[in-house]
Amino acid sequence: MNKEQVKKLFLGGLGLIALLYVYFSFFLGPLNKSRDAVQAKIKDLQTKISTSKAEISKAAKLEETAHSATVRYDALRALSPEGAPIAWFPPRMKTFLSTHQIDKGTTRLETNSACKEKELADWSRYLWIIDLPQADFESLGNAIAQLENTNPLLSIKKLRIYAATDDPELQKAVFTAATIIYKK
């Protein structure tokens, strides 16, 4: 090889290096970058799709298992009629007591507050004082039994029954009932 040829080879080598650099940096590089980005997006979406499918089937299963809870929840919610409890609870108690031959009775609201449990954020606790100045013990017992059996969200917290001085056949009764009522 003569000097001219060596020079040409050297220049050729340099040209090749430049060509490879341009090829890898400006042609293949962006293409690979784009391909990697697409692959990453595909992987991400595939993960999302598979977890979503799992979540959809989980929700469907939950829908089946929660059926009884939903029915029960609706039934419990239906125990709270529309309107302010102070408007409907005392008349309801009056009607209820009159069906047990307890005609004289007053129901008044003592306190109401939000339930402490976070699951019961949509429910409020009401404390009512039910005052019965004339009640026959047997009728009262029957009334309390039916009240407790038909109102699952009602619980008697305090109860006082004592002899009425004017009529020995009748007793006076005062009880505090706590109710859990759905906030409409």
Binding site: E55, K58, A59, E63, A66, E117, E119, L120, L153
Partner: peptide, 28 residues
């Protein structure tokens, strides 16, 4: 589905809490 699952979990939690309240009542 996520929204419904949250709603259902809420309903289950509420029903359990209410059931707990009902089951621990004292019957006078």
């Amino acid at each position: 589905a996520q929204k419904r699952a949250d709603e259902l979990n809420g309903i289950i939690g509420t029903t359990n809490a209410l059931d707990g309240y009902i089951e621990t009542r004292f019957y006078w």
